[in-house]
C-alpha cells in the first residue's frame, strides 16, 4: 500500500497529507489533520455525523476517499465560527437547546449552513427533509428545527 501526496484547501488553508488509497476523508481529517469535529457514527453514510462540505456540496466524509480530495475545497465545523464569533446557527443551537449530547451537532450545523445558503427562508418541511440524513437520537429534532428557523430569521434580518 503506497500513500499519495494530496493537496487541498481545508477551512481556507492549504493542507498537504499522505493518504493511503483506502483511507476515508473522515479519517484523514481526524487523524492526519487533527480536525476531530467530524464524527464517525456509522461509516456508511446513514447518520450524517461526519458531514463536511466538499467543493460546495455537503457530503458524508466517511463516503469520500482522502485521495479524492486532491485540489478540492473542504469545509468542516472547525471553520464555521469566525474566531470567537460564532455563526448565527451555532449561537442559535446554544440558545434554543438544540443539542443534548452534541455528537450529531457538528454535522447538523454544517448541513444546516448549506441549506440556509441555498434557501434563506426554508419551511419546516424543507428543513426536516434537508436534515433527514443527520440522525439525532437525543432531541426528537424539535429544538433543532426551531434553532435553524431562528438562525434563518436572524440571518435574513
Amino acid at each position: 500500500m503506497t500513500g499519495t501526496l494530496v493537496t487541498s484547501k481545508v477551512n481556507g488553508d492549504e493542507v498537504q497529507f499522505i493518504a493511503d488509497p483506502g483511507e476515508t476523508l473522515l479519517d484523514v481529517l481526524r487523524y492526519k489533520l487533527n480536525l476531530m469535529g467530524a464524527k464517525e457514527g456509522c461509516g456508511t453514510g446513514d447518520c450524517g455525523a461526519c458531514t463536511v462540505t466538499l467543493n460546495g456540496r455537503i457530503v458524508c466524509s466517511c463516503l469520500v476517499l482522502g485521495v479524492e480530495a486532491e485540489g478540492a475545497t473542504i469545509g468542516t465545523i472547525e471553520g464555521m465560527a469566525d474566531g470567537n464569533r460564532l455563526h448565527p446557527l451555532q449561537q442559535a443551537f446554544i440558545d434554543h437547546a438544540a443539542l443534548q449530547c452534541g455528537i450529531c451537532t457538528p454535522g447538523i450545523l454544517v448541513a444546516a449552513q448549506k441549506l440556509l445558503e441555498r434557501n434563506p427562508d426554508p419551511t419546516e418541511e424543507e428543513i426536516r427533509y434537508w436534515l433527514a440524513g443527520n440522525l439525532c437520537r437525543c432531541t426528537g429534532y424539535d429544538k433543532i428545527v426551531r434553532a435553524v428557523q431562528a438562525a434563518a430569521a436572524q440571518m435574513r434580518a
Binding site: 469535529g37 467530524a38 465545523i77 451555532q90 452534541g102 451537532t105 457538528p106
Partner: peptide
C-alpha cells in the same frame, strides 16, 4: 434557561468524545 456551559465546545467541534483522544 441559561446557555449550557459546554455549548460552545459542542457547536465548534472542540468537545472531546470517546474517540477523539489519542
Amino acid at each position: 434557561r441559561p446557555a449550557r456551559p459546554d455549548g460552545i465546545d459542542k457547536v465548534t467541534g472542540r468537545a472531546q468524545y470517546g474517540n477523539d483522544i489519542t
